[in-house]
Design a protein around this nucleic acid. Structure first.
Lengths: 171, 171
DNA sequence: CGATAATAGTTTCATCTGAAACCATCTGCA
DNA sequence: TGCAGATGGTTTCAGATGAAACTATTATCG
């Protein structure tokens, strides 16, 4: 309580303050969290699926059957998440698994007709949430946001190891 | 982008596909997650603190001693998270707790000198991460991003219950 | 006053999560 | 061949998480 009472900085965030709610990583976390929660609840309530499961369905629906590894590469999930999501989808009969006879470590995951039905129901709902989020944004603003997020995504890679020189397993 | 000028053009995402990696909620989640992980690792490695703990320190450092509830309101964390973060910070002697004699349910949390030292070390590091993230962005682009994120944050509120009419506890 | 409700904060419990260990299979190559 | 890695995927384990229950204290009001 002694040093903190001596403000030697003119503006709040000038010298040593940070102002948490203007700090980009914090803002991204809060925003993404709010959005994810709303969407997770929606999917859970109406379809009994979680976000990882939805992501798997989205990938399969988007470009057909795929292996666990392909799903992982395209969903930003780790292999454990993918494995568990597939297990739950299998239990719910929304996907099927077929071991690749040429390489029996692999298995191809494909949507079942029930899974495809869920997918077709979820897509418009997902789109509508996205639309709610972007309500009021002009086409130009959407393009801008798109571009800025892409660039942030690229920059985020630089955060991982700005000092250390790449290496080790991704998993 | 010229194909998009055809209203019924059979583009990949036209009829029923979704293309996960263009889906805004997904993009936000992946971006925030990448950023959070990098930052969490950094804080953990160098200071042995987690992101919730860092948030508490950031709030205290930003505007002085505060109660659990105040911290909660300003950190987008729930009261359980705040309670646990404070417990860990207490154990690490980075903050102190003093029960308010006027209302003994409340306790004021304040940074200890050690906490303030950590705070002063973390702030520039946090800022540098933010700078890495925004590297290459012009001042104009930063303002734009700022504004777009604020608006998305507002819109995200609309996602919570677009159909149901508000009610129930926040906690 | 005294009962009931509200508030601050903590604990419990059941679930979720991810890193590391693990199992099965395949590949490279001696 | 056969055996030391790689690879695909699952399981384990220890810790994180959050909703709901709980404790302690203060506020409200009949």
């Amino acid at each position: 309580m002694d040093a903190a009472t001596r403000p030697d900085a003119p503006s709040p965030e000038a010298a040593d303050g940070l102002v948490l709610d203007r700090f980009l990583p914090y803002r991204l976390a809060v925003l993404a969290n709010t959005v994810s929660r709303a969407i997770a609840r929606l999917y859970a309530d109406r379809f009994g699926i979680t976000i990882p499961e939805w992501r798997v369905l989205a990938i399969l629906g988007d470009s057909g059957p795929a292996t666990s590894t392909e799903i992982r590469d395209r969903s930003a999930m780790d292999k454990v998440q993918v494995s568990r999501a597939i297990q739950r989808l299998l239990a719910a009969r929304l996907v099927s698994r077929r071991t690749d006879p040429a390489d029996r470590r692999r298995a191809t995951i494909a949507m079942s007709p029930e899974g495809a039905a869920v997918y077709r129901e979820v897509v418009p709902l997902a789109r509508s949430r996205e639309a709610i989020l972007l309500d009021g944004f002009t086409a130009e603003e959407r393009r801008l946001l798109d571009r800025l997020l892409d660039r942030l995504g690229e920059r985020a890679g630089a955060l991982a190891g700005p000092d250390d020189g790449r290496g080790g397993d991704v998993d």
